[in-house]
Amino acid sequence: MIVFVRFNSSHGFPVEVDSDTSIFQLKEVVAKRQGVPADQLRVIFAGKELRNDWTVQNCDLDQQSIVHIVQRPWRKGQEMNATGGDDPRNAAGGCEREPQSLTRVDLSSSVLPGDSVGLAVILHTDSRKDSPPAGSPAGRSIYNSFYVYCKGPCQRVQPGKLRVQCSTCRQATLTLTQGPSCWDDVLIPNRMSGECQSPHCPGTSAEFFFKCGAHPTSDKETSVALHLIATNSRNITCITCTDVRSPVLVFQCNSRHVICLDCFHLYCVTRLNDRQFVHDPQLGYSLPCVAGCPNSLIKELHHFRILGEEQYNRYQQYGAEECVLQMGGVLCPRPGCGAGLLPEPDQRKVTCEGGNGLGCGFAFCRECKEAYHEGECSAVFEASGTTTQAYRVDERAAEQARWEAASKETIKKTTKPCPRCHVPVEKNGGCMHMKCPQPQCRLEWCWNCGCEWNRVCMGDHWFDV
């Protein structure tokens, strides 16, 4: 396979590697080409510095992935760790964990309700045991953590790749202090920090972006993250068709209702045909949960890209028209025109101005929308079919299609509260000796007794199943 190397943020060049090629071997190839010592090179990928003893497969490097290699003399205490030698983080029983690669970060837990604080980093599902597709590297999971809308060759929703760059020099040479644990960490600028490894760059702020994971991409090709779309790892039924499908869209209502993408497309087109989208002054033209839940309008309007190009163009047109109407304007009634106009409040005669090729020149009556006339309008008909009709959803289907309910059931079956801080902690095999993952707590306690870890627990039921 081919990976592209950008040395000291210059133009990239291809390097041929195998899945079992080590990072140090990659350094040696680059060092020979650039005429520099291999031990002064640092390989940066997806916000993480890659260790010498890791392989291309370990690092989730795919065909035509772009890695950054910078030349920086080692500072005291760094060289041993980078070589894969006596790194205290690798000691058996050590409590410190390697910062998780962005290629394996899962933010789907952050669609849980606000009262489930902490689960994004504490609760991990076991539903990723799908067998890898044919042709994928051994052991590589097909679980997708992110979804994007690819405006490039795909023109559809695709699995996405999370990447990070330095907000100062805009190069992907920043190593994160810690990985993101929720969508806010990724979507809110300057929320996460790190250290830029580019020479002479003092940058410390992280800037995240997404790429389409279905095809090789260049540095400049980015895609918009659709953070309401998630892999259906909890096997929730769709609120409309009641099938279990994946991926799904999880509405931001209190129940976190789930809808499959085909039904979401149908829901949007139906509402669009009836012009029953909601115009929100802050958000724009949007839709609420299909069950009509309060405070559930979709905030990231790129989710409506699921409509496809033709329907999305209609959505944008109707949204612009609705904006004009909300501002007190009118639409030209001549067939084939429909231009938005903003006449004076007491102006009865409205002319669709033909300047700049935008208007048709038609003069019409503001009251009856017919060709302009003197005197009273002959008839004014009330528009028919403008009443909002509820999208029919079966109550039982709505009850079963809740992301929140599956989460709470998982928590109930696989977790116990920490005796000190009461945060839910998952036990997935292993011994009875637990350690609270909350940095402010870190209590060592017994899963069996529910009390602080002691010699009695150690001698009596340390390794009970």
Rank of each mutant, 00 (worst) to 15 (best):
G459F: 15
R305M: 13
F210P: 01
C436G: 01
G329C: 03
P294Q: 09
S255L: 09
Y149Q: 02
S19R: 11
S109P: 13
P343I: 08
G12N: 05
E98W: 08
Q197G: 10
G194V: 05
M432I: 04
G319S: 10
L341W: 07
K161G: 04
R245C: 11
N90C: 11
V30A: 04
R140S: 13
L119W: 10
P153F: 08
D262L: 03
M192H: 04
D86M: 11
S384L: 09
C352Q: 02
H257L: 01
V43D: 00
R156M: 10
R163W: 12
N428C: 12
I122E: 15
L174E: 02
R33S: 07
N273G: 03
R455L: 15
C360E: 03
C182T: 10
V186T: 03
E382H: 14
E300A: 11
H302E: 15
C238H: 01
C169I: 00
G77R: 08
D184Q: 08
V36I: 11
K27C: 04
P439N: 14
C241V: 00
G385W: 08
Q63T: 11
D262G: 04
T204C: 05
G152Q: 14
C150L: 00
N356Q: 08
W462D: 01
C446I: 01
L50Y: 01
V157H: 04
A214S: 09
E382Y: 11
A134H: 10
L341K: 06
H265D: 08
L112G: 12
S127L: 12
A383F: 13
K48L: 03
S22I: 03
S233T: 15
A398E: 14
T175F: 08
I69H: 01
Q389C: 13
Q165F: 10
D185G: 00
T177N: 13
K427N: 15
D53M: 03
L266I: 15
E322V: 05
G328Q: 05
Q25S: 07
N52E: 11
Y267P: 01
H200V: 09
R275I: 00
W462K: 00
V111L: 09
V224W: 09
G329R: 03
Q171R: 12
G118L: 03
V56K: 01
G47P: 00
A134F: 10
V67H: 02
A120E: 15
G319N: 09
K369Y: 11
C59H: 02
E28K: 07
Q317K: 14
E96V: 10
V224M: 12
F304M: 05
F209D: 10
V278C: 11
F208K: 00
R455T: 15
K369Q: 09
C253F: 00
Q316A: 10
L287M: 02
G385Y: 07
R51I: 05
C337T: 03
C451I: 15
T103C: 11
C436Q: 00
C268Q: 01
R97A: 14
G430T: 15
F7T: 02
L102S: 10
I69V: 14
G336T: 07
F304H: 01
A401C: 08
N190C: 08
R271S: 14
R348Y: 05
R271D: 02
A401P: 02
H124A: 14
Q347S: 10
L162F: 02
L358G: 15
